[in-house]
C-alpha cells in the first residue's frame, strides 16, 4: 500500500510536464550549473573537485528541502482521503517522503555518471554512502512527522518552514567549502544534522576516508532523537486529525 501511494505520488509530481521524470533530475542539475558558474567561474574559488563537491551538497540538500516540504503538506493534501477512510495516518507521511527519497536515489545515480567522467578513482568507502542516505531519510521523516501534524493545526507553518529552509541553505556548507569556516564556528555548523550528512557523504565519496566515528555517532543520535520526538508528537496529535482537516 505504501509503495502504491508513493509510486502514484511520484508519477503525479512529474507527469504533468513534458519532460516527465527528467524534471526530477534536471532541477538539482540546473541549480548546480548556476551556482557553479557563480562561484567557480566568476569568483574563482579554488577547491579541488569543486564541481562534484558542490553537486553532492546540492543533491542532498535538495532531498532535505523537498522531502520535508512534501512531508509537511502531505496530511493536508490528502485530507479528503483521511476524512473518508481509516488506515495508519503515518503511511501518508512516509509515502510522500519516500517519493522524495526515490528522486534522491536517481540523483545519486546521475552523480555517479559525473563521477565517472572525473579523474577521481573508485573508493571502497563509497559502499557506506547508502547508509548515510538512509540516515538522511530517517531525519527527513522525523521532521516531516512533526511538521505535518502541526501544519494541520497551524496553517502558516509552511511559510515559516520555507524561510527556515532558505536560511538553512546558507548555514550549511553546500556552496562554500567547509574549510572556509573558522574553527570556532564549526561546532555550531554541525549542530545542524544536514551539515554532517552532506560533509560525511563527501568524505566517503570523494576522499575515500572514513568520517570521524565520534561525529557519526553524534549525528545518528541526534537524528534518532529528532525522529523519536517526531513520532511521539505525531501519534499524539494525529488521533483527532480527521476533525481538524
Amino acid at each position: 500500500m505504501l509503495w502504491v501511494i508513493a509510486k502514484t505520488d511520484f508519477k503525479m509530481r512529474y507527469n504533468g510536464s513534458v519532460f516527465g521524470y527528467i524534471w526530477a533530475l534536471l532541477k538539482p542539475l540546473l541549480m548546480f550549473l548556476v551556482l557553479y558558474i557563480v562561484f567557480s567561474v566568476l569568483m574563482k574559488w579554488d577547491v579541488p573537485n569543486f564541481q562534484l563537491y558542490l553537486l553532492l551538497g546540492i543533491i542532498i540538500w535538495n532531498f532535505f528541502a523537498e522531502g520535508t516540504m512534501a512531508g509537511l503538506s502531505s496530511l493536508l493534501g490528502k485530507g479528503e482521503m483521511i476524512k473518508k477512510i481509516y488506515f495508519p495516518r503515518i503511511l501518508i507521511v512516509v509515502a510522500s517522503t519516500l517519493t522524495a527519497f526515490m528522486t534522491l536515489c536517481l540523483n545519486i545515480l546521475i552523480f555517479f555518471v559525473f563521477y565517472g567522467f572525473s579523474d577521481l578513482s573508485f573508493h571502497f568507502t563509497m559502499l557506506l554512502v547508502p547508509l548515510y542516505l538512509i540516515f538522511s531519510y530517517i531525519f527527513v521523516l522525523g521532521l516531516s512527522l512533526f511538521l505535518s501534524v502541526l501544519q494541520v493545526r497551524y496553517r502558516d507553518i509552511v511559510q515559516i518552514w520555507e524561510v527556515l529552509l532558505q536560511a538553512g541553505f546558507f548555514l550549511t556548507p553546500i556552496i562554500y567549502p567547509i574549510t572556509l569556516v573558522p574553527e570556532k564556528y564549526l561546532f555550531y555548523l554541525f549542530l545542524n544534522p544536514v551539515t554532517g550528512l552532506i560533509q560525511y557523504s563527501r568524505v566517503l565519496m570523494m576522499d575515500g576516508t572514513l568520517p570521524s566515528l565520534y561525529g557519526s555517532v553524534y549525528l545518528l543520535t541526534g537524528i534518532l532523537l529528532i525522529f523519536a520526538i517526531g513520532l511521539l508528537v505525531f501519534s499524539k496529535l494525529s488521533r483527532n486529525i480527521a476533525e481538524k482537516l
Binding site: 508519477k11 503525479m12 504533468g16 479528503e80 482521503m81 477512510i85
Partner: peptide
C-alpha cells in the same frame, strides 16, 4: 472494515 462512507476514496483524476 470496508467503509463506503463516500465512494472513490483516493481516486485521482489524472490517472
Amino acid at each position: 472494515v470496508a467503509p463506503f462512507l463516500e465512494l472513490g476514496v483516493g481516486f485521482n483524476n489524472e490517472l
